[in-house]
Nucleic acid binder design. Structure first.
Length: 494
RNA sequence: GCAGCUGUAGCUCAGUUGGUUAGAGCGUCGGAUUGUGGAUCCGAAGGUCCCUGGUUCGAGACCAGGCAGCUGUACCA
């Protein structure tokens, strides 16, 4: 290997913002998504898969231009020069699907989807350019009962996943109420669009910067610890007070919060409509037995800035846990959604009321993992049958077959190395047991079974090499006919 | 994008005011043991000190400019 050829080799490395997912997490996420699926199915939602790639214009993204070919979304041109993009959420493809199949679908259409989405953005801690979402949507119903159902369904899902009542909360708000408050402080109208956006962004940051930070952002602006300055919305002090008061209007009960909101929106028609929708949802929550400990009305929820037109909601995990470094971690939001009444209209021209919710699978999974709810490490590694005698591979193959028929995960060593390497292999695999049958055992019609975990524990106490070598720790012989029985017993002892 | 911090072995990191041949732990590989992983002992391999230029008798260290990473922040349909 010359230096030259070495330089020409590509470096083995994952792309920035992407990651490999190991066996434990693959199994754990599968288990978790199965639970979510069961809840959604129980609520009557139908599964759907949409492609990873859509025409860029169908995703509602501006066509890439020469200056910004991939801003936020991974895009490329097809043979016919049409722009294609990797999906960046599961809602835009759903809107396309519904618009394309409207006649064939029942109204309302109730569906769920799960899968990878991609965003071409700067990755951060716990933030990747590929991640998994699990969505449910009701398309074609304007009723707040459809929104209320989403909230209750996510609450149920959390409990089915082992998150105790009180450790999560659904926070619900309504964009119309926010609009009403903005009207009341005189920033309505198209000329104030930019300022309203800044206000919404400021409110969205309550969990990170607290009320004081939000007030700074509503007013002049805020400087972060690195010295970077963020320009604020430059509201008048009285308006800052009013918005801050709104954000802080959450009361212990839904009824009390609604009263405060009604007062804050004044006589704004839109604001009142929002409060009325929240009242209807609140009544449904109460009727279905979803208490204040599960679903709250919280005016601080705004959910990004995008397409939401009515109720918005967010599921927040409230407990804390310690990560590997022993630091306290707050989980925050693991999912959310809301009403979007304009998305299908982009294709058909007709307004189709819709509401949906999205769970961040990867984020929820890391939360469950820190809580010890993922059952990682519960899948037992296979029993390894060593190949002592190459000519007798058929015999070893028969042994693993017998074990598998008995429901025991087992494999024959398929490498080409000697016994020592085979032991190392089994060790690295975390195998519970190895099965050994060399010439000596064969002659006696026996097999040796070695308990690797027990062996490792006993080895800790061995002081010198002679003992170590002699000990042949944690292994025993049984008649060949008793292989399954003995393996079963040894596994049961663990 | 903006700001701060950091780039030395596969990993985690030492490396004195600028001074000879750049170190440790862990890991890897080999031996003690050609039928035994894991304890123990012995040994070995492994380096573009991020890159380019500059200062200097001399740079891993100092300076400038790049690049990369981390963290925060902005944007985020």
């Amino acid at each position: 290997m010359s230096a030259k050829t070495k330089q020409q080799r590509p470096k083995a490395r994952v792309a920035k913002g992407f990651r490999d997912i190991g066996p434990e997490e693959v199994r754990g996420v599968k288990r978790m998504t199965r639970v979510i699926e069961e809840v959604y199915e129980a609520y009557g939602f139908e599964p759907l898969e949409v492609p990873f790639i859509e025409y860029t214009d169908a995703l509602g993204k501006f066509l890439p231009d020469q200056d910004r070919p991939n801003e936020g979304v991974f895009s490329f041109q097809d043979d016919d020069e049409q722009w294609l993009s990797l999906r960046y959420d599961l809602t835009a493809p759903l809107a396309r699907y519904v618009a394309e199949n409207q006649q064939a679908l029942p109204t309302p259409y109730r569906g769920y989807r799960q899968g990878w989405v991609f965003r071409n953005e700067k990755p951060g801690p716990g933030r990747f350019r590929q991640f998994m979402q699990f969505d449910a949507d009701t398309v074609g119903s304007a009723s707040p009962s459809a929104d209320a159902e989403m909230c209750m369904m996510v609450a149920d899902t959390m409990e089915k996943l082992g998150i105790a009542r009180g450790s999560y909360v659904m926070r619900v708000n309504n964009r119309k109420v926010l609009d009403g408050v903005l009207e009341a402080i005189g920033v309505a109208g198209p000329e104030n669009e930019a300022r309203r956006m800044t206000v919404l962004r400021a409110i969205d940051k309550l969990d990170r910067f607290g009320v004081a930070g939000v007030r700074e952002l509503l007013g002049k602006g805020r400087k972060d610890e690195s010295g970077d300055f963020t320009k604020g919305a430059e509201l008048e002090p009285a308006a800052v007070d009013r918005v801050a008061g709104f954000v802080d209007a959450g009361a212990p009960t839904r009824g009390e919060t609604l009263k405060r909101l009604a007062a804050l929106v004044g006589d704004s028609e839109r604001g009142r409509a929002g409060v009325a929708e929240l009242e209807e949802m609140s009544t449904l929550f109460a009727a279905a037995g979803y208490g204040e400990d599960r679903i709250k009305i919280d005016p601080a929820v705004v959910r990004g800035l995008g397409y939401y037109t009515g109720p918005v909601f967010e599921c927040e995990l409230q407990m804390e846990a310690r990560n590997e470094e022993g630091q306290l971690v707050r989980f925050g939001s693991v999912g959310g959604g809301g009403r979007y009444d304009d998305l299908v209209a982009r294709f058909t021209g007709q307004q189709v009321p819709a509401t949906g919710v999205s769970i961040g699978v990867s984020r929820l999974y890391s939360a469950l993992k820190l809580l010890g709810q993922t059952e990682e490490g519960k899948t037992l590694a296979p029993v390894v049958v060593l190949v002592m005698d190459r000519e007798r591979i058929g015999d070893y193959q028969r042994m693993v077959g017998t074990l598998r028929e008995a429901g025991i995960r087992a494999e024959m060593y398929v490498g080409t190395s000697g016994m020592k390497a085979q032991m190392k292999y089994a060790d690295k695999r975390s195998s519970p047991l190895v099965v050994i049958q060399g010439g000596d055992e064969k002659a006696k019609g026996e097999v040796q079974i070695k308990d690797l975990q027990l062996g490792a524990e006993l080895a800790g106490g061995v002081e010198n090499r002679a003992d170590y070598k002699e000990a042949r720790l944690a292994q025993f012989s049984v008649p060949e006919a008793d292989l399954v029985k003995a393996v079963r017993e040894a596994l049961a002892r663990r």
